[in-house]
Each structure stands twice: as C-alpha cells, then as structure tokens.
Design a protein around this nucleic acid. Structure first.
Lengths: 341, 341
DNA sequence: TTGTAAGCGTTATCAG
DNA sequence: CTGATAACGCTTACAA
C-alpha cells in the first residue's frame, strides 16, 4: 500500500524499513547517526518508495527555509540576469535556493513580492537598490530577516549593500566628456521612478556640470524605459531641439545602442557628429558599431559578493557589511571631442 | 506579549481579537464568512500585529502551494528571460508565484533543480525543451504534478508542450540560403548537449541540404556556448578552412552577432563576402550592422501560452494540450547570394 | 543507537 | 456564524 502512494512521507519510509520516523529523519540529515544495518534498510526503503522530503514540513519544523528571495526590476535586463546568475551559483554552493521575482519597476508590486517572499519563509532577501518604503525594512528587521541591497552602494544606511557609486561613476564619465569640450549634453536616463540608481547617475552628470562651471540649463534629460527602441526614439527627440547636443550620455548600454542606431539612420557619424556613451558594459557595448565607450560594472562579482555577504549574515548572525565595488570607464569609439561647427 | 512577537501567528491574532483561530482563518480567506462585528476586530488585530500568513503552514494544510517552478538553461539569455517574464506575468494574474532555477545546460543539475522544486511543493513545472531522463517525467506523473514543456513543440509525446518546430523553422531558412545559390555552409549551433532545440535546428539544416541534393559534407558544424565572443571565435575557425563557406547559419542571434563582428574585424563585407543568419529575433538582431536576417520566435507569446495552459491543467485537471506556434523568417540585410568568386 | 511524542501554523470537518 | 480538534510531514528534546 505504501508502495503505490503518490507522495510518500517519512512515515511510509519508516514503516517499510521497520524503524521510527525519528530514525529515518536522522538518517536523511546525517547518515552517520544511524548504524550501518539500519542505514541499508532506510536507503532501500527510500528509493523503493521514491521518497523526497517535503519542504514545507521541514520548514515548519526547523523554521529555516534555505531559500533566499531576490526581487529585481525585470528579468529582461542582461545586467540583472548576469548578476543574479552569479548570485544564484554562489548561494547554491552553500545549499540555498534562490527565488526570483520581478517588480516591473513598480514600488507597489515590489512590496507585494517582498511580502510573498517573506510568507514563503525566505531566510534572506536581496532587493535591488536601496530606495523603498521604510516600513518594508522595519518589517523585515522585526522578523529578523537579513537584507542585502545590491546594485547601489550606500555608505550611510542601516542596510548592508554591495554595489558601486552610481553617482561618482557617472560623474567621472560626464567629466571626461566635458573636458573633451562638450557643452550641451543630452541625457537618456533609465526610467527614474522607484529607481535611485538612475537618479544618482543623473546627479552625477549634474555634479560634473557644476564642477566645470556649466549651467545646468545645458542639460536635457529624458527617461524612457529600458529598451533599445526607446533609446532610438529619445535620441530623435534630443536631436530635434533648437541647439543639438553634441554628446548623449545614456543611463545604460541598451539605451545607448538604440541611440547609436538612430544616429546611423539619421546619417550622423559617431563620434564625429555626435558622441554617445553607455553604462554597464554588457557584451552589446563591445559589438556595437562604433563600439561603445561606457562604464564597466562588475555584475557577476557583485552577485557573488552579495551572496557571500548574505550567507555570512545568515550563518553567523553578523550585521552585514557593505562593500563598494570599483567601476571604471572603458574607452572605446563612441566618445570624442565635439566637431567645431 | 503577542504585540512584540517577531512573527505573529494566527493564534496571536485570534487571541487579540478574542476569537478562535478557525474564525481568523475564515476571515482571512473570505471576509464574508464572518459577521461585520468580528471582521472589524480581526482587521484591527491583524494590522496591529503586522500579521502575515505563514506559507509553509498553509501549504501543509491545503497541499497546494500556488507556486510554479520553471527550470531554464540560463538566465543570461534574453530569450528565456523574455518568455519567462511573460510566463510570470500571466501566472501572477492567476495568483501563482513562479520560482525560477537555472540548470546551466547540465542534465544532472537540471534533475536536481526539478527535485528541489518538487520538494518545494510546486503545483506545476515548466522545463525548457523535452529531452530528459524519462524517470523525471514518471516521477512527476506519479506525484500528479502537471508539466508543460516550452520552447520546443513536440507532437507525439505524453507531455504537453507549447513551442515551435525548431527543425522546420531552421530548414526553411537553410532552404532559402541554398536557393540563393549557397553550397558550402558553416554552422555555428548553440551548445547541443542536453539541448534538443539546437540539435533539431541542425537537423533542419541537414534536411534542407538533402532536399536540395547537397552532400552533407558541405556542412561544417561548431557548437560553442551561448556568448557573443564564442560566435566570433567560431566564425574565425570556419573561415580558416580550406574552402571558406559563403554562408554561416547560426543557432541563435547572439552567436550570429559575434560572427558578424568578427567578419567586420576581418574586413569581410556581409553579405557580399559572406552571409550570416541568426535565430530568435531578439532586439540585438535589429540593431546589428548589418541587420540580421533571422527566424522570428514569439517568445512572450510562448510564455503566456505556457502559463495559460498550465493554469488550465491545474484548475481543471485537464491533460494539457500542446500548442504549436508559428515562426517566420525576418529578412533583413545579412543574407544574400554568394558572390561569384 | 533508537523510539516516543510534542510542536511548527494553517485549514477543514464537524458540532454547537 | 463560530469553536474544538484533528490532520498535514518533519524535527527534536527527552527517554529508554
């Protein structure tokens, strides 16, 4: 009878092996805790029944799910995908499973997903970026669930983070453009609502402008959603202004490639007629024509570090340290001095 | 005391509201099943405590997790990401949460991930492609867990699938190349182990060759992992053969873009000196230079359909229907007739 | 080394 | 409409 049972339980194994459930449980969690003789019997019973432990039951008993929840804005973005893959691989090494949900850049949805993850007993949580309703952090803290923020390094917060300084990185790039002689700057930012990373990058551009004594009125900023198409459209808009900007700083490589593409369609040479820069340094940046000058971000490294930090918080109940990763500008061919018109 | 409890349970709410746990449970699942008076008290108690239902406990009680597990080869592939996003959105509408794991194209790992998902009480499973140890399907069937295969339509199997005919689609493209006058064909396939999609596409090319009376010795096949770089390397290899192929059929757009890039580096004009085709039609294909002639696959549609079908199997205990989606060739600029040398 | 039995947080059945 | 109470499958003292 137990042999045909669709979902055998520990009790079925115990019965078949002629031992108690406690013994089977011990065998499953650490074979050395039972003697050879019983070990054999259990082993046989287990695979004759095709037994698989029930996760929910185990979670209830030990109050630990070995599950980490990650909430990303969208899966359709190579940088999150890549970082997450590394995050996942590292965690897998330590026996954790990662549950991924996406928020579609919507704070409400994000909050809901986080609640769902918590309800699913996630042992830890990895949201992207830092900005969100403080209530969320409070609730997580009360439940004693470790949180690690990624993709944005924040020095002065309670929440541990592993990321980079979006603002400084973009400022560096903007500075370079300005020193090259650019005055009028077009910006195609990533969507900014509920996305401090995009906002910080814009701030970085403003910082650079101020430092170089450029009036902020030289900046025109657009922020379409992450899509090649949108980068192209935004480029057109920027180019239809009275005075065309000679450089377009983009919030990410995808948008930048769209801009590059549209420039070509409009018969504009890059960087002779107009310069375009990206951010992230995904593969796309290298194969674009011309190759994109961009900011390199160590996505995989970030994912790995986030995972390691989370494991540390989990295993040692440490408060969680923040790590700031370095980024650097990758000079390729899309940024040059403005042509003197 | 219950007020400071880090993880309030139903019992805490019940106590605070002065009712039984059964009543609170009813209230939570359908507010109409309790009278107004108690409803108010519960409401207050719930948010004073910041109560959130415990998922594992609920799963144990109802034997239903409202969770679907998806196992994809890798997250770092735009096509899976996109399809999955749609899959997830559709499922979310119906109240399901999707758990994503990746197998890194490794059958062993994949089996493990599926087991993990089952242990996590997934109500349904979505693996990519059809080929895997029959034991896995048998086990899933015994446990009565609906399975839906995606990305590959299989007419004659027990397992429901939603996908397209990889073989026919690629055959059509190869046919077109051959009719254009191509004889020697280089193939840069996606990795083929544990990946029948890639194998079927290669078969499609062979079919086309046979149909046109071309000896299979005209084909040279390489199958590096999914990466732009690898496409470039493979291209170099194909070009260092005695007789250079005049057309390179790639298993996906990413590999094709790598090939395109390397062609440019080698000073070869596409399609004048050599033609290159892709498969998938991701955004990248449109912005590549020259724009890639490729096979369009409705990824989002596929994700959505897979989700809908799974929901149907789940809610109505139907056996699960298979759906074959149409693909079509998108002619852009990378495929042309061979230059007469 | 092994067994007994309590408990984890819900839901569901069955009375009231 | 509401309250007891028995599952659900596993772990873990505590005993033997």
């Amino acid at each position: 009878m137990s042999k045909l049972c669709p979902t055998p339980a520990l009790a079925d194994v115990a019965k078949l092996a002629g031992v108690s459930t406690a013994t089977v449980s011990r065998y499953l969690n650490d074979p050395n805790r039972v003697v050879e003789a019983t070990r054999q019997r259990e082993l046989k019973a287990v695979d004759r029944l095709g037994y698989t432990p029930n996760f929910a039951a185990r979670v209830m008993a030990v109050k630990r799910s070995w599950t980490i929840g990650a909430i990303i804005p969208t899966m359709e973005n190579a940088i999150f995908a890549r970082g997450l893959q590394a995050f996942q691989e590292e965690l897998h090494q330590h026996g954790y499973t990662v549950l991924v949900s996406s928020s579609a850049y919507d704070p409400e949805l994000e909050a809901e997903k986080i609640r769902t993850l918590v309800a699913h007993d996630a042992d830890g949580v990895l949201p992207i970026g830092h900005d969100r309703d403080p209530k969320i952090y409070k609730d997580l803290a009360r439940r004693d669930i470790p949180v690690m923020n990624a993709w944005s390094f924040m020095a002065y917060t309670q929440i541990a983070s592993v990321g980079f300084d979006n603002r400084a990185a973009m400022a560096e790039l903007a500075n370079r453009a300005i020193r090259l002689g650019h005055q009028r700057i077009g910006v195609i930012s990533d969507i900014t609502t509920g996305n401090e990373r995009a906002r910080l990058r814009i701030e970085g551009i403003r910082d650079a402008a101020r430092q170089n004594g450029l009036s902020l009125s030289n900046l025109t900023i657009l922020d379409p959603p992450y899509q090649i198409e949108n980068g192209a459209e935004a480029f057109s808009k920027l180019m239809s202004q009275g005075i065309r900007p000679k450089v377009i700083l983009c919030g990410n490589d995808v948008l930048a490639v769209g801009a590059l593409h549209r420039a070509r369609d409009m018969g504009l040479k890059v960087p002779k007629d107009v310069s375009v820069t990206g951010f992230d340094d995904i593969e796309l940046a290298r194969v674009a024509a011309p190759a994109l000058t961009t900011v390199h971000v160590p996505h995989r490294e970030m994912g790995r570090r986030a995972a390691a930090a989370l494991v540390d918080m989990l295993e040692n109940r440490t408060p969680g340290a923040s790590t700031r990763l370095a980024t650097h500008i990758v000079e390729r061919q899309s940024l040059g001095p403005p042509a003197s018109t």
